[in-house]
């Protein structure tokens, strides 16, 4: 009898525990959901054509760690808006945003360098990060050329469409052509190795 009542008591307390846990979880979920809705609303980018306003808005939102997740979306928005008002100042604006994003831990320094390098450097980030010698690296020449082509399109956005730096973009194109010319010769010479 005692054993039965003890078992029943245990069952009851176990069931009550489960209920409490379920209610707790529900409350927590709803709390998270409302918090997430709040964050989502706060982190939402409000479109503006004014470049300074757009950068200030993004900088403000990135002060909140909840918005860090939206960094890539912000970058895309800013790239689009900056195209509407091309000029050298834009490069400085992006550089400052990337610096502050690195400082705030939104992105790593490497990611910052990657983004800035891909859009605003006349040289190719994809080429800079290759560590093996040319004979080894160029075994994957089609993939390298594909990365370079993708990056050249990004440079067209960054240098030409956003910074209005036609000379800079021409330099990037010149690098692109010259490097591929040299890479072709090196790859050919390496395959003829005896």
């Amino acid at each position: 009898m005692n054993r039965i009542s003890q078992k029943a008591r245990l069952n009851f307390s176990g069931r009550r525990g489960l209920w409490l846990a379920a209610i707790g979880a529900l409350l927590a979920l709803s709390g998270c959901a409302s918090q997430s809705i709040d964050n989502s609303a706060f982190c939402q980018f409000n479109y503006t054509k004014n470049v300074d306003e757009a950068f200030a808005q993004v900088s403000n939102k990135l002060d909140s760690s909840a918005c860090h997740y939206y960094f890539d979306d912000y970058m895309q928005e800013l790239l689009t808006i900056a195209k509407g008002a091309p000029g050298r100042d834009n490069q400085e604006r992006f550089a400052n945003l990337l610096r502050s994003s690195i400082d705030r831990g939104v992105i790593s320094k490497r990611q910052g360098q990657e983004i800035f390098g891909q859009y605003f450097d006349t040289e190719f980030y994809a080429v800079k990060v290759m560590q093996r010698n040319n004979c080894a690296s160029l075994q994957n020449k089609p993939a390298i050329y594909a990365s370079m082509k993708r990056e050249l399109r990004m440079k067209k956005q960054g240098l030409l469409d956003i910074s209005n730096d036609a000379q800079g973009f021409r330099r990037a194109q010149s690098h692109y052509e010259n490097m591929q010319h040299v890479f072709d010769a090196v790859a050919l010479a390496c395959t003829r190795d005896i």
Partner: peptide
């Protein structure tokens, strides 16, 4: 001769980044 020089000087001694730096 040119192929040998390119292979040893550019192919083996340098990385793609080195070539980019040299050209730049």
């Amino acid at each position: 001769m040119m192929g040998t020089r390119i292979r040893s000087e550019l192919g083996r001694k340098m990385t793609p980044g080195d070539i980019q730096r040299t050209l730049a």
